[in-house]
């Protein structure tokens, strides 16, 4: 059985990017890392897929 335990004091930052799909549903992309804000796409490509021009980004 695994009884190993180590004290971890720092978590890798979690980022949340929320878009709106053509039918109005939300979709949230979670990424992790000091500089990982998620795969970047140009706004025009996002609109082709139907999500809103603006996306919300949050560091969680």
């Amino acid at each position: 059985m695994d009884t190993e335990s180590t004290e971890w004091t720092r978590e890798i930052p979690m980022h949340r990017r929320r878009i709106t799909l053509a039918d109005g549903r939300y979709m949230i992309f979670y990424t992790f890392g000091d500089d990982a804000a998620g795969p970047d796409r140009p706004a025009s490509e996002r609109r082709e897929h139907g999500d809103a021009p603006g996306t919300e980004e949050h560091h969680v």
Binding site: L21, R25, Y26, M27, I28, F29, T31, G38, H49
Partner: peptide
């Protein structure tokens, strides 16, 4: 994920880590 030139899936990105969305 939706691959370049591939059919559009529910996820309009070419890759992702973890994704959450409202069920269709």
């Amino acid at each position: 994920p939706t691959k370049p030139g591939g059919f559009p899936t529910e996820v309009p990105e070419s890759t992702y880590d973890i994704v959450v969305f409202l069920n269709r």
